[in-house]
Design a binder for these strands. Structure first.
Length: 325
DNA sequence: AATGTTAGGCGTGTCAACCT
DNA sequence: AGGTTGACACGCCTAACATT
């Protein structure tokens, strides 16, 4: 389980071809107050002028003024009043990633601003899809405990359609899933290779010694909800003939295994998960040679986070944790 | 001139008291 | 019980002035 390769998604970032158009645009940049970008970044992070001001060590009206100058700078409202607070416009969301990235690049070049895990109190947010959270969360937390006292982790097990934006806007630093994020502005690192196996109850009345594809198709199946985002089971049940055999769609592989252990249904799960629960649930484990039964676990992050020294440290910690898997 | 702070005003949400 | 009202708190904005 130590198959580690970094993959940068291929593809052009819109606007790349304009990089060489300098000239008068340099003057344009000279007229812009780049300090305002730190205000923008703080306001986007906190979505609150007062708290952004506290974070920046400025007064609230000063930040409010800076925001109005930003509005002129970008020729957009950027933030609109929403009840008691403010809400970023679509343009503000669009600007956030590139501006964050630019600020990060500059910050990383300033002296004395490294990341020290021994003194840092930083909290990292990561998401690990089910069932990988069961495998990796204890290892990651154990590794973190060994490496730092102050750094904390906020781990979420949910992968949803907004994950790319959450990574882009730094609401999350990393995502771990069986799927990579194949976009030009994301990095994916393969953490390890997993193997798919078939589980059934050892008391199953019909299964032969050697299970083949016909037998597989003849049985009723338990799966993880197929229409959920990034469903673990969907890739193996996207054909009508296999989907027709689905009898139970559970919220997670844990409930799927529990159901399989007490019924005549069968299910596809990662080998480590099957082994981990085989005795407790009296499960039989079979290989599935008719499938491409290899699946890879990926660590993904947005390119704007790739220069942050803290993120680099956390990335190494996650890779090391996964290598113990 | 640009950008900061202070003071004061306005809009909105919350909550308790009151009314129907 | 459910709706209305008013006091209050919160958060943002503008104007006036100070500082660099």
């Amino acid at each position: 389980m130590t198959d580690i390769t970094v993959e940068k998604s291929l593809g052009k970032i819109p606007g790349d071809e304009k990089k060489h158009e300098a000239g008068h645009e340099d003057n344009h940049l000279r007229r812009a107050d780049l300090n305002l970008l730190t205000v923008f970044d703080a306001v986007m992070q906190l979505q609150n002028i007062t708290r952004a001001a506290q974070m920046l060590g400025m007064s609230q009206p000063a930040v409010s003024n800076a925001v109005s100058r930003l509005k002129n700078m970008f020729n957009d409202e950027l933030f609109v009043r929403c009840g008691r607070g403010i809400e970023p416009t679509a343009r503000a969301h669009q600007l956030y990633g590139p501006i964050r990235q630019a600020l990060q690049l500059v910050t990383n070049e300033l002296p004395g601003l490294g990341f020290d895990p021994l003194t840092s109190k930083r909290q990292f947010s990561i998401t690990i899809s089910s069932p990988l959270d069961l495998l990796l969360t204890p290892k990651v937390l154990a590794m973190l405990k060994r490496c730092s006292e102050g750094v904390t982790l906020n781990i979420e097990s949910l992968i949803h359609e907004n994950i790319e934006n959450q990574l882009r806007y730094h609401e999350l630093e990393f995502a771990i899933d069986y799927r990579s994020i194949d976009r030009a502005d994301f990095y994916n690192q393969r953490l390890f290779e997993d193997e798919l196996v078939l589980i059934s109850s050892r008391n199953h009345p019909r299964l032969p010694t050697q299970i083949d594809y016909d037998c597989f198709l003849n049985e009723k199946h338990a799966v993880v909800r197929l229409h959920g985002y990034s469903s673990f089971s969907f890739p193996y049940y996207n054909a009508p003939e296999s989907q027709a055999r689905v009898c139970y769609q559970g919220a997670s592989l844990i409930s799927v295994m529990e159901i399989v252990s007490r019924t005549e249904m069968i299910a596809l799960v990662p080998r480590w998960l099957a082994l981990h629960n085989a005795e407790r649930l009296n499960l039989r484990i079979d290989t599935v040679p008719w499938f491409d039964n290899k699946l890879h676990c990926y660590l993904s992050w947005h390119e704007s986070a790739s220069k942050d020294k803290g993120n680099l440290w956390m990335k190494d910690l996650l890779i090391q944790s996964a290598s113990l898997a």
